[in-house]
């Protein structure tokens, strides 16, 4: 079956999402000329493939539980936010809060992601080929954030159980984040994820593992913490 063509210059966001939501499993769609349009391919739970051909805006692929979405361009804030299942792949850069609160599924960013990538992550997988900005992994609860390039300031601040792997340098760690020894399991995990994303530049045995020191798990009066 040929892909369904949806042209943003002709259709409203509502018409595009309604058309995508109505497709049967296995169908494919091409969203043309997005021109920074927000909220494309959100809230979908059908197993379709969506190719967004150009730069798109905020919340692309947000609240999805099923489709595979590819963006041939840059995306704005909070791509794949609250993702449950399926994948979102961005061929360009992603702006702030990429993969925010994703509960499942996989977000792949082939370029850089900006600040707060993987914020509040709840079990999803966020794979960034390039760099991530400051406060990435903030309050991330579960799941994995893999960074092929460098990480900005305050990486993993107030981290819960998400594990962060960084291929390049780390500008600084946030409160309660610490570097831990890489285990064989970690190396296997990173290899599997890098292979899946097609990130050949990542050497799985040569990444830094960042996880929670778990010192903020309890309000300890005498720990000298800054509440």
């Amino acid at each position: 079956m040929d892909p369904v063509i949806l042209d943003c210059t002709q259709l409203s966001t509502r018409e595009i999402n309604a058309a995508l939501g109505g497709l049967p499993d296995g169908a494919a769609a091409r969203v043309m000329a997005p021109w920074g349009r927000h909220n494309l391919a959100v809230g979908l739970d059908n197993r379709i493939t969506v190719r967004i051909e150009g730069n798109a805006g905020y919340f692309i692929g947000g609240l999805c539980a099923g489709p595979d979405v590819v963006v041939d361009g840059f995306v704005g804030w909070s791509v794949a936010e609250n993702l449950m299942r399926g994948t979102v792949r961005v061929r360009g850069n992603a702006s702030e809060c990429a993969g925010a609160s994703a509960h499942g599924g996989t977000l792949i960013v082939e370029g850089d992601a900006s600040s707060r990538a993987g914020i509040s992550l709840k079990g999803g997988t966020v794979l960034v080929a390039g760099d991530v900005g400051h406060m990435s992994g903030f309050m991330a609860q579960a799941g994995i954030l893999l960074v092929g390039g460098d990480a900005g300031q305050a990486l993993g601040d107030s981290l819960y159980e998400t594990v962060i792997y960084v291929g390049g340098s780390i500008a600084s760690l946030g409160s309660d984040a610490r570097v831990e020894d890489l285990t064989d399991d970690d190396v296997l995990t990173v290899k599997r994820l890098a292979d899946r994303a097609g990130f050949e530049h990542i050497d799985p045995g040569n990444v830094t593992r960042v996880a929670s020191a778990r010192e903020l798990y309890h309000f300890d009066a005498l720990a000298g913490q800054r509440y």
């Binding site: 966001t13 927000h38 909220n39 919340f59 909070s78 925010a100 609160s101 509040s120």
Partner: peptide, 19 residues
Amino acid sequence: PDWVGPDDLRIKIEELREA
């Protein structure tokens, strides 16, 4: 985690409606 301020909130509300 995914928006800050009323300009972003406008987009967030549209996302929830679209979904």
